[in-house]
Structure formats: C-alpha cells, structure tokens
C-alpha cells in the first residue's frame, strides 16, 4: 500500500508517495534526485549514506522513508550556504586533501559535522572513534582526520558555519 510522507529536505518542504519499504536514501536519490548521498554497502556498515535527521547523523540506508515523516533532513547538498560558500567542514576536506575518489566523502562530512555538534574540540582519537561508522577505501583516513581537526580549530576561532539549511 503506497503511503504519503511529508518532510523537510534541506529546508524545502517535500511531499512524496512512497512504498512502505522505500528507504530514506531511495527517497533522497531516486525520488528527489539528491545523488550526493551515496550507497556503498548493503550491511549498514560503510556510512556513505549518512545524512542528518533532526540534526543527528543517521545511515539513510537503514531508515525507512516513512520513518522520516515530519522530520527535517539535511543532506550534503544542504550544507553549503545558499551562495555556494562551502561549509567549514567541506572547505577543510578540500584544503587538507581529505578525499581521493570522493565516494565516502559526503558521509564522512555529514558524520564529522555531527561530531563537532557534540564535541567542538575533539582529540585525534575522538575523531577516529567517531568516524568508525564511515569506511574509506582510498585515503587511509590520515587526511580526513586532519581535515576534521582543522575544521574544529577554524570553527572555534569564530569562523561561523553557515546555518545549514534545515538545522
């Protein structure tokens, strides 16, 4: 039986008809064309699909679209300012070369942004622990960790994150 879900995605109200079994990531990618959110596994382990739901990072491949009814979802597309200015986390990944092929990057960035919400000045160990749910096959994590630590420094020294569209 198809159902109707209404939610906010990157600050825009969205209403779609989906199946009970439609995953949130399918709603984002296939119904809304927001293909920045990736799917890298079918075991809920890789974190390529991480988005924020009501401000918290979740694996959008392990949540039904129906469970997002009424929620406010932010994807990687919603992180930069409307004028295109990158979020400090995106800028830090670019600056520190925190990516190679880029497949894991949207999930890494969304997860790392959530970390700084909990812990604005994480240690290197805390960054590595937090990113356990995000797998990267390319970088060896070194520059990713460097980017997150540097972003924490930037954000502490006052460079404000552009208010992410929906949070």
């Amino acid at each position: 039986m198809p159902i109707t879900v209404s939610l906010s995605v990157n600050g825009r109200p969205v209403t779609k008809e989906v199946e009970g079994r439609t995953l949130l990531v399918q709603l984002l990618r296939e119904h809304l064309g927001l293909t920045g959110t990736h799917v890298g596994c079918d075991t809920s382990q890789c974190g390529a699909c991480v988005v924020h739901v009501d401000g918290k990072s979740v694996k959008s491949c392990t949540m039904l679209a129906a469970q997002a009814q009424g929620a406010s979802v932010t994807t990687i597309e919603g992180l930069a300012a409307p004028d295109g200015t990158l979020h400090p986390m995106q800028a830090a990944f670019r600056e520190h070369h925190g990516l190679q092929c880029g497949f894991c990057t949207p999930g890494m960035v969304m997860s790392a942004v959530d970390l700084l919400q909990h812990n604005p000045s994480p240690s290197e160990t805390e960054v590595r622990e937090w990113l356990e749910g995000n797998i990267c096959r390319c970088t060896g994590y070194h520059n990713i960790v460097k980017a997150v630590l540097s972003c924490a420094e930037t954000m502490k020294s006052g460079a404000k994150a552009p208010a992410a569209a929906a949070e």
Binding site: S57, V58, K59, T62, M63, D114, W130, E132, G133
Partner: peptide
C-alpha cells in the same frame, strides 16, 4: 555500541 549513526537510531 556499533558506531555513532547506529547509536543515534
């Protein structure tokens, strides 16, 4: 338990 995203749900 698991990772941050598993713990959030």
């Amino acid at each position: 338990i698991g990772d941050a995203q598993v713990r959030n749900r």
